[in-house]
Simulated scan of single mutants.
Amino acid sequence: MKKYLKKCLGTISVLALIQGCSTAKLSNEGSNIEVITALDRKDCKNLGPVFGKGGGVFGGTWISDESLMEYASNDLRNKAALKGATHVVVQNHQVGMSTGKNGGSTSTVTQQGIAYKCPS
């Protein structure tokens, strides 16, 4: 029984660590945020910087690069929505790598932007 319990706890711990990496789902509010690369409107209020992150130390290397970018974008849009934004101007992104004896892989993606609230 003890052996079975240890195995179960070990499996649960690994699953928790993998789930612990940031895989942000897009919230209802975040889905209303317009992502743009430049803002030429003068009637919008700058709400400040926002940062979105996808991946993490545990699990990030097992997630595709495309999914890491999607998770970072979702996190960015969700955080902009929390500030009351309608738009986010994406400024850049950063990719983190993990390395090992067999090479490396992308483990995290961070996106940076500025949140804006624009009238309808």
Rank of each mutant, 00 (worst) to 15 (best):
D40H: 04
V35R: 00
V35T: 13
G52D: 14
G55A: 12
E34C: 04
R41F: 03
I63H: 01
D40V: 03
N46P: 11
F51P: 07
G56T: 09
G52P: 11
K42A: 15
D43P: 12
K45H: 05
C44E: 12
E66N: 09
S64H: 04
N32V: 00
G55N: 10
K45I: 12
V35E: 15
L39W: 06
S64V: 04
G52K: 00
G30V: 04
T37S: 14
P49N: 05
D65V: 00
G30E: 14
G30H: 05
D40S: 11
D43M: 08
A38L: 03
E34V: 08
T61K: 01
K45Y: 06
F51E: 15
N28G: 15
I33P: 14
D43Y: 07
L39D: 14
P49E: 14
G60C: 08
I33K: 00
D43H: 10
E29Q: 11
I36L: 07
N32D: 15
S67V: 02
G55P: 15
V57A: 10
R41L: 12
A38F: 03
G56M: 08
G59E: 14
K53H: 11
K42I: 06
V57E: 14
L47H: 01
G56I: 03
W62Q: 05
E66P: 06
W62S: 12
A38E: 15
S27A: 07
G59A: 11
G54E: 12
G54I: 02
G48Y: 05
G48T: 09
G30A: 09
N28H: 10
T37Q: 11
L47W: 02
V57I: 07
G59Y: 14
E34I: 05
G54Q: 07
D43G: 13
G59M: 05
S31Q: 14
I63Q: 02
L39C: 12
E66L: 07
G30Y: 03
E29W: 06
E66M: 08
